[in-house]
Design a protein around this nucleic acid. Sequence first.
DNA 1: GTGGCAGGGAATGTATCCATTCGCAAGGTC
DNA 2: GACCTTGCGAATGGATACATTCCCTGCCAC
Lengths: 225, 225
Amino acid sequence: MSADSVTDPVVDPVSSQRIAAALREAILGGEFAPGERLLQDVIADRFGASRIPVREAFRILDSEGLMEVSPNKGARVPALDLYEVHTYYRMRERLEPLTLTESLPHLTDAQIDEMERIQEQIEANDDVARFLVLDRDFHMTSYAACPSEQLLSATVRLWNSTQHYRRAFMLLAGPDRASIVNAEHRLLLDAIRRRDAEDAERFLEGHIRRTRVALQSHPELFDRP
Amino acid sequence: MSADSVTDPVVDPVSSQRIAAALREAILGGEFAPGERLLQDVIADRFGASRIPVREAFRILDSEGLMEVSPNKGARVPALDLYEVHTYYRMRERLEPLTLTESLPHLTDAQIDEMERIQEQIEANDDVARFLVLDRDFHMTSYAACPSEQLLSATVRLWNSTQHYRRAFMLLAGPDRASIVNAEHRLLLDAIRRRDAEDAERFLEGHIRRTRVALQSHPELFDRP
DNA sequence: GTGGCAGGGAATGTATCCATTCGCAAGGTC
DNA sequence: GACCTTGCGAATGGATACATTCCCTGCCAC
């Protein structure tokens, strides 16, 4: 056992899970572009495994909305057009307020404090890649106490599927919109502190909706190379 | 080639897909109870295949919400408690009106006529198993023109996950509630004919909500055996 | 030049065999 | 008697090898 095993993240002994976790990070981090095909052999070599666990990993990621596999045609990162991203955002507008409402009564004060700290980091930050991580953390923390595994995983799927376009949008729009996002986050955080589900739902829906409308004004994000 | 190959459903040459399709039917049809474990060997023998395509099929069904696989612990049909089914219905209340709204402008008159025919069969029918099929057909036909593959598959997942409890509820509550369901379906159908998305959303949400409330009054459906 | 067709290489799908893990039950200890 | 431990059988995870499908390329006919 290595001396610093305490700080090492525990690596899953099940290869398919380990590979899925690594690919998940890579896809969410933008290492693979939408539409990019992933070959079983290549991924298998990369992880020193056979193709069997790689196939399992592909299926796992498929169920998370991060890949799409089709019989005899291989696996690729989904490439969405404007309409599909638009639809994902409309799904988010309807589902995530519910997730928040379910989470709200079970959120601990410590978790709300954690959201506050994340928001402070967002306000002090001006790096796009870091914003994406922090923004995700902010919202996921607000959902973390949702007792429904199903609702939570559905929410994560929606975030996963739109992650790449969120990044592309941020890179394009730049940090100009930061002040609006911060205002929205502050309103949301305040409603959560007050345990006001109705306000929280309203602010969250508005936050997602505004992002959707902003995205729509940049159709060039969806031009196929 | 068999003489009646035209009427035969095309069987998928890919074993994993074929097995997944058969298991999907079996689970939705109630052949496996929630919580029941499915062994790779048993399923493999049943379909005359090795365990590899069975594992693929399990993963496929997992992504459809029909099974849950956990590493080294096998695969089973998800068993939900009252809260989780309740949550699924609340998700349905929010998502399915959107699916309908997206589908509505693209629905052909022929599809609406088809819904009418299905509704007539529902009204002339008094068998629970057949009702479940027809009811699903009725709603799925209303969603069929939804251009978003993602929204459609999310909707199907929600239906899949709650199918068993819908059946259990119908067997318990009997056909007493038929008249209310018929009234709701008629209102929904009328709104669809008028291409009135707002009314259609309202009636659909109410339809799902009423079913959820009715389900909640039968907590005995969720007693573990 | 355009369309279709055949062939070959590459990638995916599957079977068999082996490795690993899990669960349970029998036995032992305090 | 309760609790831990040990070991065995069964089930899952993974590697290798083979079968099948797909796709692209080049050739041919028109």
